[in-house]
C-alpha cells in the first residue's frame, strides 16, 4: 500500500515536471515576447509583417527580372549600359546621393521644437513609408543626426530657423493619415509641447536635394 502511494506521488510530480518542461521549451522556442502583447498590438504587428513581406516579394520579383536580363545579355555577349545606368540611378536616389521628385507631404514646424521630437517625426514618416526626407532643404540619409534642445535644433551641424519645413516623398494620403491620426505625432506634440505646431500639407510634387555627405565608408571594407 505504501509502495503504491510512493509510486503515485512520483508519477504526479513527474507529470507536473513534464508539463512545465514543455511549457518552458515552447516559451524559449517562440522566444519572441509575443505572449506579452495585447490582441490589438498583435494585429498591428501582423499588419507590419505583412507589409514587410509584400515589399520583399516585390523586391525579389524586380531582382529576378534584373538577373534574367543580365544572364540573357551575357549569353549574347553584350552588356546593357542602359540597365546598369538605370540601376545606378535608382540606388543613388534611394541612398540620397541624387535629387529626387515625387508626391508627398510637407510638415511646417513652428515653435521651439527639440531634436528628439524632430527625430520622432522623421521616424514616424519612415514608418509610414517615406522614401526620401529633407529638413530645411537638407536631405536626411543614413548618418544624418538631428540634435539640440528646444528652439536650438541642428541638422547635420546646420542650425534650423524658428520655422522650417520637413518634406517627405511617399504616398501623400498614407503619410498624412499616419501623422495626423489620433495619438499620432501631431497629437503627441500638441499635448507635450503646446508652443510647437506641426501643419501637415499633402503635396503633388516635391523635389528634394541630394545629400552633400560622402557616404562611402572609410573604416569598413566590403565583406563579400
Amino acid at each position: 500500500m505504501r509502495r503504491m502511494r510512493n509510486q503515485l506521488t512520483i508519477a504526479a510530480v513527474s507529470f507536473v515536471l513534464g508539463l512545465l518542461v514543455v511549457t518552458q521549451l515552447r516559451a524559449q522556442a517562440s522566444g519572441s515576447g509575443l505572449g506579452g502583447m495585447s490582441s490589438q498590438d498583435l494585429t498591428v504587428f501582423v499588419a507590419n509583417l505583412n507589409a514587410g513581406i509584400d515589399q520583399r516579394r516585390q523586391e525579389i520579383a524586380a531582382l529576378e527580372r534584373d538577373l534574367a536580363t543580365l544572364a540573357a545579355n551575357q549569353d549574347r555577349g553584350v552588356v546593357s549600359l542602359g540597365q546598369v545606368r538605370d540601376e545606378l540611378s535608382s540606388i543613388r536616389a534611394y541612398a540620397g546621393l541624387a535629387a529626387v521628385v515625387g508626391p508627398g507631404v510637407t510638415v511646417s514646424v513652428a515653435g521651439p521644437i527639440d531634436g528628439p521630437t524632430l527625430e520622432d517625426l522623421i521616424n514616424e514618416l519612415r514608418g509610414a513609408g517615406a522614401e526620401a526626407i529633407a529638413i530645411g532643404g537638407i536631405r536626411i540619409v543614413a548618418g544624418s543626426a538631428v540634435t539640440g534642445g528646444p528652439g536650438d535644433v541642428e541638422v547635420e551641424d546646420s542650425p534650423l530657423d524658428d520655422t522650417f519645413e520637413v518634406s517627405a516623398i511617399g504616398g501623400a494620403e498614407t503619410l498624412t493619415g499616419s501623422l495626423t491620426r489620433s495619438g499620432g505625432i501631431v497629437a503627441q506634440v500638441a499635448a507635450t509641447s503646446p508652443d510647437v505646431s506641426l501643419t501637415v500639407t499633402p503635396v503633388e510634387r516635391l523635389e528634394l536635394p541630394a545629400t552633400k555627405r560622402n557616404l562611402v565608408p572609410e573604416h569598413g571594407s566590403p565583406r563579400l
Partner: peptide, 29 residues
C-alpha cells in the same frame, strides 16, 4: 565589427530621380 547588408526593398514607388539626375540611355557590347 561585422555589419550585414540591408535585406529589404530599395525599390522606390513614389520617388524618382530628378530630371537633372536621370541617366542617358544607351547600350554597349
Amino acid at each position: 565589427v561585422d555589419i550585414p547588408a540591408f535585406a529589404g526593398t530599395v525599390t522606390l514607388r513614389n520617388a524618382r530621380p530628378a530630371p537633372s539626375e536621370a541617366p542617358a540611355a544607351g547600350d554597349g557590347g
